[in-house]
């Protein structure tokens, strides 16, 4: 995802936020909550249901493949709290979209593709997990991304 050259071998991989997705895991997945009263799912995990105010909530792994509901490309580098390893010089525009996960919710996330010509509503995408930034101590901060299915497995 990002330039991770120079990472020391002993670095740790840490999730960008606890409870956002299963990590470490053989097949990581985003974690959602589902209301036991009304069945509505939410991401990230919420302690109460925004639909019915219910507080009986179950945590579940969300599907890892979905369809792109809408998208844009962020063409300029955001101000903080944006926190990456990029500088104004190395910033590259990035795609953002909502991925509709069947039976679950539409989740907002960064796309691995930033070419508007290659993005269209309804395309299939996988949820992948990759390094977002490298901390000064060498720790890799892991986040989630949506990747076009055609590219799955082709990019490390």
């Amino acid at each position: 995802m990002n330039d991770i050259a120079g990472v020391v071998p002993m670095s740790k991989q840490i999730p960008i936020a606890e409870g956002l997705f299963t990590w470490p895991a053989e097949k990581p997945a985003l974690l959602g909550s589902r209301c036991k009263s009304c069945g509505i799912a939410a991401f990230p995990v919420a302690e109460s249901c925004m639909a019915c105010s219910g507080q009986d909530i179950a945590v579940e792994a969300l599907p890892t493949r979905g369809t792109l509901w809408t998208w844009t490309v962020q063409q300029f580098m955001p101000k903080p709290p944006y926190h990456s390893n990029e500088t104004a010089e190395t910033f590259r525009p990035y795609g953002v979209g909502y991925l509709e996960l069947p039976g679950g919710v539409r989740v907002e996330g960064r796309l691995t593709e930033n070419d508007p010509e290659k993005l269209h509503i309804g395309m299939e995408m996988d949820v992948i997990f990759d390094t977002w930034r490298v901390e000064e101590n060498g720790d890799e901060v892991i986040s989630f991304f949506f990747q076009p299915v055609a590219n799955s497995g082709q990019e490390a």
């Binding site: 955001p78 990035y94 960064r110």
Partner: peptide
């Protein structure tokens, strides 16, 4: 969460 802003969604 702070992560939402860190990855550029805010």
């Amino acid at each position: 969460g702070q992560w939402y802003g860190e990855v550029g969604l805010m």
